[in-house]
């Protein structure tokens, strides 16, 4: 038996390579600028160019610029000076950082304990309403429509700590108060969380209401047949059915609360006695009170790194659910 030697070009895949590899190699070999243009590459690029330019200018460029500024001493007027990691070490050595981190975590905790379940409770109650559900939905969503700054300034008036303040008058009707609301270090943060919960709950309620419509009525019917009351139906049917959406809103809330700025800035400017100074407020003060953009961007990057970890958790969790 003779052996036939088939000559192969030097870059050809070995004869025993899988078919898909061979096809892939042929595709690579055939690609030229002409084929790329004919394949629609140029038109894709032209169509995508505005997006790339806008993203580049308004999203990626600031990120690059912030990263550069974090290793500089700069006030954006005089020439920047490279300082290595000095800004990071200075921020980490700032005695206020620990307070800001603690306050941010405290805000997140309070929002989690009180602000997180509240929309769920309201949504479940509203889902049980037979008539006028639209009115309740509109009322629940109304705070979201109010511009955040207006809402905070309104609540600031309500939080008047004098006995004839709005909230103190209301609690006075039941023999409580007057409370110091924003005027006491131990009261200030819970007061901020209360307003933030009111302001944000509407959006979450709508999400929960939409999710609740997806829960099969047969499950409740079966539970009722088994003798379950309202609480057992919520615990054994509603919550398991909403598990996915609950986890997503949880992650989003944690990320959102880590970036809390509006409330401490407008209500108390971080006071009294730094009791509401958060990380974002610290970043703001570095940049716009003291003009130290190096420290501001250094702390921003550190916060971004922490949030990136949280986001990774979020993506991993959601990708496993989608499978």
């Amino acid at each position: 038996m003779t052996t036939t030697v088939v000559s192969q070009p030097p870059d050809a895949p070995p004869a025993h390579a899988p078919v898909s590899s061979i096809m892939s190699a042929r595709r690579r070999r055939r690609r030229t600028p002409v084929t790329w243009v004919r394949g629609g590459g140029l038109s894709t690029l032209i169509l995508g160019l505005p997006l790339l330019v806008i993203f580049g200018l308004f999203s990626w460029f600031p990120i690059v610029r912030a990263t550069v500024m974090s290793v500089q001493t700069t006030n954006l007027v005089t020439a920047p000076v490279y300082v290595g990691l000095d800004n990071f070490t200075a921020v980490l050595a700032d005695p206020l950082l620990g307070t800001a981190v603690t306050n941010t975590l405290y805000f997140a905790l309070l929002a989690l304990v009180f602000g997180y379940p509240a929309p769920l409770v309201v949504a479940v109650l509203m889902s049980e309403v037979r008539r006028g559900k639209g009115v309740f939905s509109a009322l629940a969503y109304l705070p979201v429509v109010v511009p955040p700054v207006v809402a905070v300034l309104l609540w600031k008036v309500f939080y008047d700590a004098s006995p004839d303040g709005v909230f103190n008058t209301i609690v006075g009707w039941v023999g409580l108060g007057p409370f110091p609301w924003l005027q006491d270090p131990s009261w200030a943060m819970p007061s901020l969380v209360l307003e933030a919960t009111w302001a944000a709950a509407g959006g979450t309620i709508i999400i929960y209401l939409a999710a609740l419509t997806g829960v099969a009525p047969e499950l409740y019917d079966a539970a009722e047949v088994d003798g379950a009351g309202v609480w057992r139906k919520v615990w054994h049917v509603t919550l398991p059915q909403l598990r996915g959406i609950l986890f997503i809103t949880l992650i989003l809330q944690v990320i959102g609360t880590a970036q809390v700025f509006l409330e401490p800035y407008l209500f108390t400017n971080g006071g009294p006695a730094n009791s509401t100074t958060t990380i974002m407020l610290m970043i703001y003060n570095y940049a716009f009170q003291f003009g130290d953009y190096g420290k501001a961007t250094a702390l921003s990057l550190m916060l971004a790194a922490v949030l990136a970890v949280l986001s990774t958790v979020y993506f991993k969790a959601t990708s496993s659910w989608s499978k």
Binding site: P180, Q183, D184, P185, G271, P272, A273, N274, N285, Q289, F290
Partner: peptide, 18 residues
């Protein structure tokens, strides 16, 4: 000057609220 004043804000606030 401003940094000094900023550092004293919490001191005044603490005395008036605690």
């Amino acid at each position: 000057t401003q940094d000094l004043y900023a550092a004293l804000d919490p001191v005044v606030q603490a005395v008036l609220t605690d």
